[in-house]
Write a protein that binds this DNA or RNA. Structure first.
Length: 236
DNA sequence: CCAGACGTTGTT
DNA sequence: GTCTGG
DNA sequence: CCAGACGTTGTT
DNA sequence: GTCTGG
């Protein structure tokens, strides 16, 4: 799950909404089809900050976490998700979960619901109804030096809750605004309590919207990708 | 000891 | 079927 | 996540 | 870097 999402807002808007310093400092086109390997905005605590009130910064990173010990950055190709249930023990993630946590701003995300016979699939777009951003819990890592230097991130997943189970069995781990400070707190190296309490309420407030098949192709990127399609074309 | 993996999803 | 690229 | 490629030799 | 399997 969660191999595609949207990031429509520009850095200035995101910096405002997430109370972060804008380090991107250039305009971005709204992205209606964020796929692994793309560079996208994420929010992290500033260096040398302390506590849940630590200052934050908005920076761009590549989606797909490349562990610092990887021989080749292609390793990140498959690490675009990390299971909340096993994060702390997996070699690829356990150091990042202690020290390098991020918020991944999104307007919504896509899931492909499979038909019962598994032969066809229908994409859905899950989005907020009030236009506020979602914050996916994420981790980041740096890899390489000099010309090869990369900063990459992964999105944490958890078991789907409530209405979302109709579409898929996993979902991104949503953090309520009240938990952002604790999630990013540089002084904290144990977040098992936060990972134990997903934002159920937020999930119930989302709109689940069947959309056209065009989103499947990563080269497509336009507002039409998130438009609701006719119920006749839906499998639900 | 060294060599090789280190991940998720979904499907069977 | 399985890997790569976006 | 999905879509698209998946190979070599030799010739242009 | 660190764990697992042989």
């Amino acid at each position: 799950m969660c191999g595609r999402y949207t990031s429509k807002k520009n850095p200035v808007e995101l910096a405002e909404e997430f109370d972060a310093e804008d380090r991107i400092a250039e305009q971005r086109r709204p992205d209606f089809n964020v796929a692994p390997t793309r560079n996208e905005p994420v929010v992290r605590a500033e260096r040398d900050q302390h506590g849940p009130q630590a200052a934050r910064e908005l920076v761009e990173m590549r989606w797909g976490l490349v562990p610092f010990w990887a021989k080749d950055p292609k390793a990140g190709g498959r690490m675009f998700n990390a299971r909340a249930e096993t994060l702390t023990t997996k070699p690829a993630f356990r150091s990042a979960v202690k020290k390098r946590r991020v918020l991944v701003p999104a307007d919504g995300w896509y899931e492909w619901k499979k038909s019962e016979d598994g032969k066809t699939k229908q994409p859905y777009y899950m989005t907020t109804q009030d236009g506020s951003s979602l914050a996916f819990a994420g981790l980041w890592e740096s890899w390489g030096t000099g010309e090869d230097y990369l900063q990459t991130y992964t999105i944490i997943t958890t078991e789907a809750q409530g209405q979302l189970t109709e579409v898929h069995d996993r979902m991104p781990f949503l953090l309520p605004a009240s938990a952002w400070g604790d999630w990013l707190d540089p002084d904290r190296d144990d977040v098992t309590d936060l990972l134990a309490t997903p934002d159920l309420e937020r999930g119930e407030q989302l709109e689940l919207r069947p959309v056209g098949a065009d989103v499947g192709k990563v080269a497509n990127n336009s507002p039409e990708l998130i438009e609701r399609i006719e119920p006749g074309a839906v499998l639900l």
